[in-house]
Computed example of a mutant assay.
Amino acid sequence: MIVRVPDTGRVLTQGVHDTGEVLQFKEDTLDVVAANGGSLQVSIYGKLQAAKPQGQRATWYVRPKA
């Protein structure tokens, strides 16, 4: 998984994370990409996102909260 700030390209985290590990970020704009989208549970602004297919690349875009 890689999490980056799109405006700057700054990478906040990249690599494999442990099962049950929780990551939180303060930035309001993020791009999240996972090689296996089905291996993640993603929550954006406290709202659980729909599950992605197992074994497929997945992306999430976090934009400023309205």
Score class of each variant (00 low, 15 high):
residue 12 L to G: 01
residue 29 T to V: 11
residue 53 P to Q: 07
residue 56 Q to E: 13
residue 33 V to E: 13
residue 29 T to K: 15
residue 2 I to E: 15
residue 31 D to L: 06
residue 14 Q to T: 02
residue 45 Y to S: 00
residue 3 V to L: 01
residue 49 Q to M: 11
residue 18 D to A: 15
residue 29 T to W: 02
residue 7 D to T: 05
residue 2 I to R: 07
residue 6 P to G: 09
residue 56 Q to I: 05
residue 18 D to M: 14
residue 11 V to C: 09
residue 63 R to E: 11
residue 40 L to A: 07
residue 16 V to H: 10
residue 57 R to G: 09
residue 60 W to D: 02
residue 54 Q to G: 05
residue 33 V to H: 14
residue 19 T to K: 14
residue 30 L to Y: 02
residue 47 K to Q: 13
residue 24 Q to W: 10
residue 60 W to Y: 07
residue 46 G to R: 01
residue 59 T to E: 15
residue 7 D to A: 15
residue 65 K to E: 14
residue 36 N to D: 15
residue 36 N to K: 12
residue 2 I to G: 05
residue 26 K to G: 13
residue 37 G to T: 01
residue 31 D to N: 13
residue 6 P to S: 09
residue 33 V to F: 08
residue 55 G to Y: 06
residue 1 M to E: 12
residue 35 A to P: 08
residue 26 K to T: 15
residue 54 Q to P: 04
residue 42 V to N: 02
residue 24 Q to M: 09
residue 33 V to P: 04
residue 19 T to S: 11
residue 33 V to T: 08
residue 45 Y to H: 05
residue 11 V to Y: 08
residue 61 Y to I: 14
residue 64 P to R: 06
residue 61 Y to D: 15
residue 1 M to Q: 10
residue 40 L to N: 04
residue 19 T to A: 15
residue 36 N to R: 13
residue 6 P to I: 04
residue 53 P to N: 10
residue 18 D to S: 14
residue 58 A to Q: 06
residue 25 F to I: 03
residue 59 T to V: 07
residue 15 G to E: 04
residue 18 D to L: 15
residue 44 I to F: 00
residue 15 G to D: 05
residue 22 V to F: 03
residue 51 A to Q: 09
residue 22 V to A: 11
residue 56 Q to M: 10
residue 4 R to C: 06
residue 9 G to T: 03
residue 4 R to W: 01
residue 17 H to V: 12
residue 65 K to T: 14
residue 43 S to F: 03
residue 50 A to D: 11
residue 64 P to S: 06
residue 35 A to T: 05
residue 33 V to G: 10
residue 59 T to I: 06
residue 34 A to M: 13
residue 27 E to K: 11
residue 9 G to M: 07
residue 14 Q to S: 13
residue 21 E to H: 07
residue 64 P to V: 10
residue 42 V to C: 00
